[in-house]
Simulated scan of single mutants.
Amino acid sequence: MYRCPDCYSDFLMRVEPCPGCIDQANRKARAKKAKERRHSYDPNGQIEDWEFWDLLRWYRTCPCCGKNWSAVEMIARDHIVPVSRGGPNEAKNLQPLCQPCNLWKSDRIIYFDRHFAGRCAPLPEYLLPYLRAAAPGVHEQTTFLEAAPLDLRLRYPEATARQLEEITLHLSTAQELDY
Rank of each mutant, 00 (worst) to 15 (best):
G20E: 01
G20D: 00
C21W: 08
I22M: 15
I22L: 15
D23S: 11
Q24D: 10
K28I: 04
K28Y: 02
A29T: 12
A29Y: 11
A29D: 02
R30Q: 11
R30E: 09
K32A: 15
K32N: 08
K35C: 11
K35S: 11
K35G: 04
K35L: 14
R37I: 05
R37L: 07
R37K: 13
S40G: 09
S40F: 14
Y41D: 04
D42I: 12
D42R: 12
D42C: 12
P43V: 04
N44Q: 13
G45Y: 12
G45A: 14
G45K: 11
Q46R: 15
I47N: 07
I47G: 06
I47F: 07
D49W: 06
D49F: 11
D49Y: 05
E51T: 08
E51M: 07
E51N: 05
E51S: 10
F52E: 02
W53V: 07
D54T: 11
D54V: 01
D54K: 14
L55F: 11
L56E: 03
L56P: 01
L56S: 01
R57I: 07
W58I: 01
W58N: 06
Y59I: 00
Y59H: 04
Y59K: 02
R60V: 00
R60M: 01
R60Q: 05
T61N: 13
C62D: 00
C62N: 00
C65D: 02
C65M: 09
G66R: 00
K67P: 00
K67E: 01
W69F: 05
W69N: 06
S70N: 14
S70F: 06
A71W: 00
V72A: 00
V72K: 00
